[in-house]
Design a protein around this nucleic acid. Structure first.
Length: 551
RNA sequence: GCCCCUGUAGCUCAAUGGACAGAGUGACGGUCUUCUAAACCGCAGGUUGCAGGUUCGAGUCCUGCCAGGGGCACCA
């Protein structure tokens, strides 16, 4: 179902063209975008636009005059019941209640695919997220990027993209060597040896546990083993842990991309060679520099150290070229605040290779605090994502991680999250869904069906408001994608739940002893609540939150 | 010192440059022999960090300050 505002904007564009063609407005440059708001006051209709306010100056006419001329040429439409102007120059559109009511059938026909629409045209899109190196279990902070990335992937799929979820990691380098040596020492300790454990090593308890397990399972057979043996054991254990945690949050990656493969296939060094050939890399002080300043950077960057080793920037550039080379029209990098400043250099690198970086977008998320405590993996003073899931469950973790805009700091309110009551917004939304499920169960038991229900009876303000709200979901999806702002989803879900609860209060569906309901009304309302159930379930599903039948 | 993000009700946060800045939570007061009260209704709460500017219109854009977070490596 196409976002509703597409259809309304298209009417306004027609109106603008018609008005100009009729000579009622001079020829003007069409505005780049036509804003459409949902006004607060009922007398301003369901949608309004400041279009005329923007045109007034170049048309040399009062805004209100522009608005009424536009209205005169607004093409007739089944969507619109009334179009008015209001000071200082707004155009207000009221949806046609008959059209609104009829959409219930369309929602029911769409079923679980309701709110899907074609924006991507089947183009390949990738969301790269989590991307933690396998040096430890996932922290709470990683959970935010994980949930955000997975939800953006869901949104892209709903909007007609062919989506790949990708996890980028590096299992070489100093980090992994430190991890291996840390494990070796923990293993030695578990065997009863007195060893000094350097502060720079990984302090986390998970390695102590793993060391003990090794000691009990393998005895001292690893005492003389190479560090690479410990690396393999640790890496495998850490990936098991990471994948396990992600699956508890219903996150499943399509691709685990190893940075090493970019060395194995030579593409890292190809980048250096090509940058040199294009004149965008040069040697200085024994290192190879990327001329980032030629692409708007504030300073040039070392890509190969004087030791001959690449810096992190080089494989990053090679990786992003690789992404584009795999045919992804859209690439979303979900990054933590600590990596966002490196992103522009990656784009410049890709551009320097002669590629178009415009399809690569960044979704930065700020850190998560839990009870005000800062988290640091290396110091081992962090709260594990697994512990948080144990505490509040996957639904609450997902919903809370999505609730704040990504660039805003997220203070995870554990007390509220643990609250299994009306205070918790997750349950508030889920409860609306179970209320509907309850009505449908009861209807079935009592022999009420929606068969032959006439949705044109759905004219009550509570009914109309509910339908209009359900119809907003495609618009919310599009907005969330345009701004890469998945937090619009939990807000929408809460609004939809609120409006449903209001409907529930005002509009009895099934007859009861003290509340008789016309059988035809029951049938029509059964259709409506089924449509509301579809909308709620879809909104929850996009967030990866379950939609329970009973609570 | 420079760059990026954030600063909005007591608290946690929304608000594509549009109309009188909204929710939740907390406080207070109501509504259950219910289509499940995990709900609903009412009431209270604001100089949108500060100072300028841009325009028909600024929480939103620009400049300068202040505060918090993140970065500014031949670390990732």
């Amino acid at each position: 179902m196409q976002p509703l505002h597409h259809r309304l904007v298209s009417l306004l564009i027609d109106s603008l063209n018609n008005t100009q063609a009729a000579g009622d407005l001079p020829a003007l440059d069409s505005p780049a975008a036509i804003a459409l708001d949902r006004p607060k006051k009922p007398e301003w209709g369901n949608y309004s636009t400041p279009l005329a306010l923007g045109l007034a100056r170049s048309a040399r006419l009062p805004p209100l005059e522009v608005a009424s001329r536009l209205l005169k040429h607004l093409p007739p439409s089944e969507l619109i019941a009334q179009a008015t102007t209001s000071a200082p120059g707004f155009i207000n559109l009221t949806l046609n209640p008959a059209w609104v009511a009829a959409q219930v059938e369309a929602i029911l026909a769409a079923g679980p695919g309701f709110a899907d629409f074609d924006l991507g045209g089947g183009a390949k899109a990738m969301v790269e997220f989590v991307s933690a190196n396998p040096t430890g279990p996932l922290s709470v902070g990683r959970g935010r990027g994980g949930v955000i990335g997975d939800t953006v992937a869901n949104l892209l799929a709903a909007a007609g993209y062919d989506v790949t979820r990708e996890y980028y990691f590096n299992n070489a380098g100093k980090q992994m060597r430190d991890l291996a040596e840390s494990l070796r020492l923990r293993y030695a300790q578990a065997l009863g040896q007195e060893v000094e454990f350097p502060e720079s090593y990984y302090q986390g308890e998970y390695l102590t546990d793993l060391g003990r397990r090794l000691a009990s399972e393998r005895g001292d057979s690893l005492a003389a083993a190479e560090w690479t043996a410990f690396k393999e054991i640790a890496e495998s254990a850490m990936f098991d842990s990471i994948k396990g945690t992600l699956s508890r949050l219903r996150i499943y990656m399509d691709v685990f991309f190893n940075e090493n493969s970019l060395y194995d296939d030579g593409s890292v060094w190809d980048v250096v060679r090509e940058l040199r050939e294009r004149g965008h890399a040069y040697d200085s002080e024994g290192a190879v520099w990327f001329k980032a300043t030629a692409f708007g950077g504030t300073e040039d960057r070392v890509i190969v150290k004087s030791t001959g080793e690449p810096t992190y920037r080089l494989p990053d550039i090679a990786y992003h070229r690789n992404k584009l080379g795999r045919g992804f029209a859209l690439v979303v990098d979900v990054l933590g605040a600590d990596h966002k400043d490196a992103f522009p250099d990656v784009l410049r690198g890709v551009q320097a290779l002669g590629l178009d970086p415009s399809g690569i977008q960044m979704l930065m998320n700020q850190f998560v605090t839990l009870k005000g405590e800062k988290m640091s993996t290396r110091a081992g003073r962090f709260t594990l994502l697994d512990e948080l899931i144990d505490e509040v469950g996957a639904d609450v973790v997902r919903f809370f991680m999505l609730m704040r805009s990504a660039e805003s700091h997220l203070e995870f309110d554990l007390d509220l999250a643990k609250e299994q009551s009306e205070k918790n917004p997750v349950y508030y939304v889920q409860y609306a869904h179970t209320r509907i499920a309850g009505i449908l169960r009861k209807a079935q038991a009592a022999g009420h069906t929606a068969d032959g229900g006439d949705v044109s009876r759905l004219t009550h303000p509570g009914e109309q408001a509910l339908i209009r709200k359900i119809l907003e979901l495609p618009d919310v999806i599009e907005l969330a994608l345009k701004d890469l702002a998945p937090h619009h989803l939990p807000y929408y879900a809460q609004e939809l739940a609120t409006i449903f609860h209001g409907f529930y209060r005002d509009c009895q569906v099934l007859p009861s002893e003290n509340q008789p309901v016309d059988p035809a009304t029951t049938k029509a309302r059964l259709k409506l609540v089924s449509a509301a159930k579809i909308g709620l379930a879809r909104a929850l599903g996009l967030m990866g939150v379950s939609a329970p039948e009973m609570m």
